[in-house]
């Protein structure tokens, strides 16, 4: 018996098995932090890596997140305040003028799986709302998504007013028309081409 079995069950997308394995580990008195880190979170890291490499696909990423969450629910009540504290807070949304949410939702889901607190503002979000929310939530990162080329200027605008507000928050951007070069040009603190890459990026920025 080991947390490896939890990890394996997530990679097999087997919710029933994940719950059983987590219960077994809890019964055996395994450290909760170990179950979380070596079983659940490590499995999602590898899911992310395989997705980025093109070996796993979106439905498998969604399913593994669902399976992981089922395991997480079992240990959540047992976490100490310190253990359950999030790794950081990310305010995320699709910028003004853009209704597309698929990429944004995937990123939010993967960040949540990695232990970040997510404040999802949805789509078509005004620049000011990002900044206001980030201030209220004492966010570490504002993550901006866009699918349309026409809404890329809204990203620039949001970053500009974020900087002007002088918050201790990093800004990152992503979406089909966005590139590293564009991120650099509008002075975003980071860019990622996919959801798992965003998790890595946020860990670097926050860690």
């Amino acid at each position: 018996m080991s947390t490896q079995e939890i990890y394996n069950a997530i990679l097999a997308f087997d919710e029933v098995s994940v719950k059983a394995k987590v219960r077994a580990e809890l019964g055996a008195g395994t450290d909760i932090q170990t179950i979380l880190d070596d079983g659940l979170v490590r499995a999602m890291d590898i899911v992310g890596e395989r997705f980025s490499a093109g070996d796993l696909f979106i439905p498998e990423m969604l399913k593994s997140a669902q399976v992981m969450k089922a395991g997480l629910e079992l240990i959540k009540p047992l976490l100490t305040t310190d253990q359950s504290r999030s790794k950081g807070t990310v305010v995320i949304g699709t910028v003004k003028g853009d209704q597309h949410d698929i990429g944004k939702n995937l990123v939010a889901m993967m960040l949540e799986g990695a232990g970040f607190k997510i404040v999802d503002l949805g789509v078509d979000v005004e620049s000011e709302v990002f900044v206001k929310t980030a201030a209220e939530q004492k966010a570490d990162v504002i993550a901006l998504s866009s699918l349309l080329t026409t809404t890329m200027p809204a990203m620039e605008q949001t970053i500009r007013i974020t900087k002007a507000a002088n918050l201790a928050v990093k800004t990152i951007v992503g979406g089909a028309p966005v590139s590293q070069a564009f991120a650099h040009q509008i002075e975003a603190d980071g860019y990622s081409a996919d959801a798992p890459g965003t998790v890595k990026l946020v860990k670097e920025l926050v860690g």
Binding site: F57, I58, P59, L62, I102, N105, L106
Partner: peptide, 8 residues
């Protein structure tokens, strides 16, 4: 048309 991958 929306992606089948996110909702069957």
């Amino acid at each position: 048309v929306q992606p089948l991958s996110v909702n069957n």
